[in-house]
Simulated scan of single mutants.
Amino acid sequence: MLEEWFFWAYERHQNVLSWYIRPLFLLPFCFFAYRRSLKGIAVVLLLLLSSMFWFPKPAAVDPHVQQFLQMEQDYLLGEWNLAKMLMTLLVPGSLAALAYAFWKRSWLYGLLVLNLIAVLKIVWSIYFGGDSVSAVVAPALTGLVLCNAVIAAALYWLRKRKRQPRQY
């Protein structure tokens, strides 16, 4: 049953639209961390985890996408050793660091962690994905640029708002 679900989800994960929207979930994640809302963070994480299978299975799949997902599948279903477990723990660890930075209202550290997450994802993809990495780079960089732009705009807006006297 679990194996059936796994392959059903992976078929839908071949739709690259899910690859483009997933990084954007970091925006509400950062927002709820900034607002110190554990419930909001939990909901965003649930949506992020489920987003890979929101889209229908594509009619045609780019060979690089197929190759990259096969590598990911082999990685997940392959033998697990201590090094692989520690590397995989970087995902929740980096999300915790991102939440902590925004929880503490540290925009600079938040942006640093956000950029580090994207760079590490690309480096991991290059290391394990080989030639298929081209499928991952565009969604990762697009998400990174958008997230940086929105967070920078939010910081600008907050600072501008603080400088203006309140009018009643």
Results as ranks from 00 to 15, higher is better:
Tyr34Val: 02
Pro92Tyr: 00
Ser132Trp: 08
Trp54Asn: 02
Leu24Gly: 00
Leu89Arg: 07
His13Lys: 14
Ala118Cys: 00
Leu46Gly: 12
Lys160Phe: 12
Leu77Asp: 11
Lys121Val: 05
Val145Cys: 02
Leu76Lys: 14
Leu69His: 12
Ser132Tyr: 05
Lys104Ala: 15
Ser37Tyr: 10
Gln73Val: 04
Ser125Thr: 11
Trp103Phe: 13
Pro63Leu: 12
Leu98Phe: 13
Leu27Lys: 04
Ala42Asn: 01
Met71Pro: 00
Val65Ser: 07
Leu47Ile: 12
Gln167Pro: 11
Ala154Cys: 00
Phe68Lys: 08
Gly110Ser: 14
Pro23Thr: 02
Ser94Lys: 06
Val136Asn: 13
Leu120Asn: 02
Leu17Ala: 14
Arg161Phe: 13
Thr142His: 11
Pro28Glu: 03
Ser106Trp: 11
Gly40Met: 05
Ser132Lys: 01
Val136Thr: 14
Lys57Cys: 10
Val65Arg: 06
Tyr20Trp: 08
Asp131Leu: 03
Tyr100Thr: 00
Val61Phe: 01
Leu108Lys: 04
Met1Thr: 10
Ala118His: 05
Ala99Leu: 12
Trp124Pro: 00
Val65Cys: 09
Phe29Met: 13
Ser37Met: 07
Ser51Lys: 12
Arg35Lys: 15
Leu120Lys: 03
Glu72Gln: 10
Phe53Thr: 03
Met87Thr: 05
Leu155Gln: 07
Gln67His: 11
Lys160Ala: 15
Val91Asn: 05
Met71Lys: 00
Ala99Pro: 05
Phe128Leu: 15
Ser132Asp: 04
Leu98Cys: 07
Arg35Gln: 14
Ala135Asp: 06
Gly129Tyr: 04
Ala83Trp: 10
Ser134Glu: 03
Asn115Thr: 02
Phe102Lys: 07
Trp5Asp: 08
Gly129Leu: 01
Leu46Thr: 12
Leu49Trp: 14
Phe68Arg: 08
Met52Leu: 11
Gly110Val: 10
Val43Trp: 13
Gln67Leu: 05
Leu95Pro: 03
Ile117Ala: 01
Arg166His: 08
Val91Tyr: 09
Asp131Phe: 03
Gly93His: 10
Ile126Arg: 11
Ala138Ile: 09
Leu47Gly: 11
Gln66Pro: 01
Arg166Glu: 13
Gln66Glu: 13
Trp157Ala: 12
Met85Asp: 00
Ala59Thr: 14
Leu26Glu: 02
Phe68Tyr: 14
Arg161Ala: 15
Trp8Ile: 01
Tyr10Thr: 09
Val145Pro: 01
Ala42Thr: 12
Ala59Gln: 11
Arg105Cys: 07
Ile151Gly: 06
Arg105Pro: 00
Gly143Tyr: 02
Arg166Leu: 14
Ser50Phe: 08
Ile21Pro: 03
Pro58Asn: 08
Tyr109Thr: 01
Ala101Glu: 14
Trp107Pro: 06
Leu77Cys: 08
Arg22Phe: 07
His13Arg: 15
Leu98Trp: 11
Ala153Lys: 04
Phe128Tyr: 15
His13Gly: 13
Leu86His: 00
Pro165Cys: 00
Trp103Met: 06
Ala42Phe: 10
Tyr20Phe: 15
Ser132Arg: 02
Leu46Lys: 07
Trp8Cys: 07
Ala138Trp: 05
Tyr34Cys: 03
Val133Glu: 07
Trp19Val: 04
Glu79Leu: 06
Ala60Glu: 14
Ala33Phe: 10
Trp5Gly: 04
Ser134Gln: 08
Gly40Val: 09
Asp131Arg: 06
Leu120Cys: 05
Ala135Trp: 03
Glu3Thr: 02
Ala42Lys: 00
